[in-house]
């Protein structure tokens, strides 16, 4: 392709936007509406996932050891457990640390009456997990270690969080698939109508001797531009809606904001921007590409 033809094709793609104002507006509005819903849903789900993840990070398994187990033995168990994939972090709490914590939390000045550490055999390991659904397997393993006396865990919390994770994954996948299917249906209909109006132009091009590529290229450029604009608009709207909504919730519902840790917009947009652009451009590209193909057999 000549350079002048290349720029002509790009130029025609831009000019087509103006030539078919209503079609352009309808297509942009459809893509924007679909991606707005998608972006809104994505932001909510991402925050919800973050809340669950934060809760998960707080869930730990506490391991107590038999009487007389030395610090070296406990630290050896710690090193062994740290090799396991499901373990994120292990904190060693010595008997003295355990007693200090206990005194601070429950006894205060009354602790002076104790001359010896009553929690002498309370040295323990606090294990934090990468994935709470793997808690059961880890506990089974720990219980099989000789020096282990007792393993404390919150099975209900772990199961609830694990179940929530699965539920979020299913709901997200379901809603995203429905939104994408609706988007593709609406957008391909809009593109089909827009191109049907220009069937004559495509016919003339074919009669004159245009190659399929030359006929298709301006439409595809146009589709991509529509896709880009159609994805930028909802991203801008969601940006303002999201930041204002969080600011409002934090200022009005102080208690809620201490419980829920909202993600900053930059974190949400790290993935939302490329996903939205990819969907917008993809739909614009494939929508125009496949619809023009129907009219190429002249």
């Amino acid at each position: 392709m000549r350079i002048s033809s290349f720029f002509y094709t790009i130029g025609q793609g831009f000019k087509n936007l103006g030539r078919n104002k209503w079609y352009t507006l309808a297509s942009i509005a459809t893509i924007s509406a679909c991606l707005f819903l998608f972006g809104l849903f994505y932001s909510i789900i991402t925050n919800f996932e973050n809340v669950v993840k934060t809760a998960e990070e707080g869930v730990s398994v506490t391991v107590f050891f038999n009487e007389g187990t030395s610090e070296e033995q406990i630290l050896a168990v710690k090193s062994d457990l740290e090799q396991r994939a499901e373990v994120r972090e292990i904190v060693y709490v010595s008997a003295d640390d355990a007693w200090e914590d206990f005194k601070e939390e429950y006894l205060g000045e009354y602790a002076d009456g104790f001359t010896e550490n009553p929690l002498a055999d309370s040295a323990n390991l606090q294990i934090y997990l990468n994935d709470v659904s793997l808690q059961g397997a880890l506990v089974t393993y720990i219980e099989s270690i000789d020096v282990v006396r007792e393993v404390n865990r919150s099975e209900v919390t772990a199961n609830t969080l694990s179940g929530l994770n699965v539920l979020i994954a299913y709901i997200s996948a379901g809603i995203i698939i429905i939104l994408l299917l609706v988007s593709i249906f609406l957008i391909s209909n809009t593109v089909t109508m827009g191109i049907a109006v220009r069937k004559d132009e495509i016919n003339i091009m074919k009669y004159i001797g245009a190659t399929d590529f030359f006929v298709r290229a301006p439409f595809v450029v146009e589709g991509i531009i529509i896709g880009i604009i159609g994805s930028i608009i909802p991203l801008v709207i969601i940006y303002f809606v999201y930041t204002n909504a969080i600011a409002y919730v934090v200022s009005r519902f102080t208690m809620l904001s201490t419980l829920l840790n909202f993600l900053p917009v930059s974190i949400v947009y790290n993935k939302l921007v490329p996903i939205s652009l990819a969907i917008g451009i993809g739909i614009g590209f494939f929508g125009s590409f496949t619809t023009v193909r129907k009219h190429l057999h002249v």
Binding site: S5, I204, A210
Partner: peptide
């Protein structure tokens, strides 16, 4: 006629040359 109604006379004729990639 099958002319492109959104373009002027010059553009309609030049359109045929563009299609066969004639230099500007």
């Amino acid at each position: 006629f099958r002319l492109l109604k959104d373009r002027n006379v010059y553009e309609n004729v030049a359109f045929a040359q563009r299609i066969v990639q004639t230099p500007t």
